[in-house]
Design a protein around this nucleic acid. Structure first.
Length: 462
RNA sequence: GUGAGAGUAGCUCAGUUGGUUAGAGCACCUGGCUGUGAACCAGGAUGUCGGGGGUUCGAGUCCCCUCUCUCACCCCA
């Protein structure tokens, strides 16, 4: 015998079993329904791009890309997309004259990262993006928050909190400290507050920068203690105060800073509006969240599951001033977010492992070895014509090698989770009837063929 | 890329200070039950002990190298 070849997927890639795929498909359907309800239209975009397109011409982003070695286009380096937002930016730039703005689209698809996998982090994963492109209006930011709440709930999460912030406020603070140029690095460190705590963040902010520029293992921005104090005092504000207290404090603190005041105004609109429509327990102003992504410039969102915060954010997003600046001179502001469905579902599975079934059909047709196998196909067909999902256990003609006994067929039905078995056997068949067995209660009774569809329908959907 | 841990049956794992033929549970197959599953009883099949080298009379066990996976860092859904 030839040596067998590895059948397991690569690390960070997932096989999905039927029972999990059923959950996944339901979740996707629910999400899409939410997106459509808010006016987002579906689009589709390619998975592979040239390096240049993916990175937007910027250096340094390519570290996490999933390389594609074969199929180079005229020597061009190509790679898989790492999210759905970059493809959107490119798409909007490429189809600018065909689209109507504000443009709202959703896109459900896979993205790839070339990094080491970890808990809740894969190298291939699904994202469900929705964005509103071509407006700076704060209502779009507020509606984005609502879509996030509705989608995470629709995917099956019960307890979660959407953290809200606006980068303009922190940027205002940094501006007053003369640190605006380092904004992105500072935001990234601040973003780790929940993970490494205040001492950790303070250390990273004040430690000397890496000796070797660009080193990945050393951290440190070399800020002054005073700057670190200011930053930490600011981010802890939302931990001490929420609601009107917080707004009042912020407005006083930043009364002379134009940039921050705009951010406060918008954040207040979004946070109070969202809490008003979906409940205060769903939304929380959190001045410490920043999002690592560089293109966010205003509102930022992050969603944590109350029962599984260790999985990280399951739905994040933000507002950007100019999404497609790398691809077009047209300025395209917008706001959007992404449901990390692979992560969300793996977290939900941990919170409440649901007994789900491996079959989409409620009914299994099993046939005795003593009847013409055609009867099974015929009876299954009756149910399908009546729009009742019916799976027929493949049954060979009597005496054939792989003809299965009733017991084995019922065992299969049990393993797959069918609700009812329709047993086709000679005694009933001569009377023009079959036996219908409830797989849970084990009760079974004889039903005439003419009444089969209606009987099953009433039992399946009482 | 950096650091830590782990690789034994399809899955989860046990395997004593190195000792003959490597085990258990679950799952699977067969029969008890020629017209009835998830319970029970009896039986059955399954392993290059991740790979390579070394020490030894003898290695799943000790040493070295290598590969892979997991967790964490970086970064992020």
């Amino acid at each position: 015998m030839a040596d067998l070849v590895e059948s397991k997927p690569l690390s960070g890639f997932l096989d999905v079993l039927p029972e999990d795929a059923a959950v996944f498909e339901r979740a996707v359907d629910s999400l899409k329904a939410v997106f459509r309800k808010y006016g987002y239209a579906p689009i589709d975009t390619p998975c592979i791009y040239s390096y240049e397109t993916l990175t937007g011409g910027k250096a340094g982003v390519d570290k996490q890309l999933f390389d594609w070695r074969k199929g180079d286009e005229g020597g061009k380096h190509i790679a898989l997309r790492f999210d759905l937002t970059v493809p959107l930016a490119r798409y909007v730039a490429a189809n600018f004259q065909k689209l109507t703005f504000p443009f709202k689209r959703y896109d459900v698809g896979k993205a790839w990262r070339g990094e080491r996998p970890q808990k809740g982090r894969y190298r291939e994963f699904y994202q469900c993006d929705f964005d509103t492109v071509g407006t700076t209006a704060a209502t779009a930011d507020l509606e984005t928050a609502l879509v996030m709440a509705d989608s995470v709930a629709a995917a099956g999460a019960e307890r979660f909190v959407i953290h809200l912030n606006d980068r303009q406020i922190l940027n205002g603070l940094l501006e007053s400290l003369g640190l605006l140029a380092q904004s992105e690095k500072v935001l990234r460190v601040v973003d780790k507050l929940d993970k490494i705590g205040e001492p950790g963040v303070r250390a990273e902010l004040t430690q000397a920068p890496p000796v070797v520029a660009g080193s990945q293992d050393e951290v440190g921005l070399g800020l002054s203690q005073k700057a670190a104090d200011e930053i930490l005092a600011f981010t802890s504000l939302s931990k001490e105060k929420q609601g009107d207290d917080l707004w009042k404090t912020l407005e006083e603190r930043f009364s002379s800073c134009d940039r921050a005041r705009k951010g406060i105004e918008r954040l207040r609109f979004v946070a109070t509006g969202a809490a008003n429509l979906r409940g205060t327990e769903r939304f929380q102003v959190d001045l410490s969240i920043a999002r690592g992504l560089g293109y966010y410039t205003g509102t930022v969102y992050e969603t944590l599951l109350t029962d599984a915060p260790e999985f990280g954010s399951v739905c994040s997003g933000g507002r950007y001033d100019d999404l497609a600046s790398s691809y077009t001179k047209q300025r395209l502001p917008g706001v959007g977010a992404s449901v990390g469905l692979s992560r969300l579902l793996s977290a939900l599975q941990k919170i409440k492992p649901e007994a789900s079934v491996a079959t989409p059909c409620p009914v299994l047709i099993v046939t005795s070895q003593d009847v013409d196998p055609f009867e099974g196909v015929r009876i299954a067909d009756i149910l399908r014509r009546a729009s009742i999902g019916a799976d027929l256990f493949p049954q060979a003609i009597k005496g054939a090698e792989d003809s299965s006994k009733l017991g084995k067929q019922l065992k299969y039905g049990d393993a797959r989770g069918h609700s009812f078995a329709v047993i086709v056997a000679p005694d009933e068949l001569v009377r023009g009837a079959v036996s219908v067995k409830d797989m849970k209660t084990q009760k079974q009774d004889e039903v005439a063929l003419e009444a089969l569809a209606s009987t099953l329908r009433s039992r399946l959907f009482p």
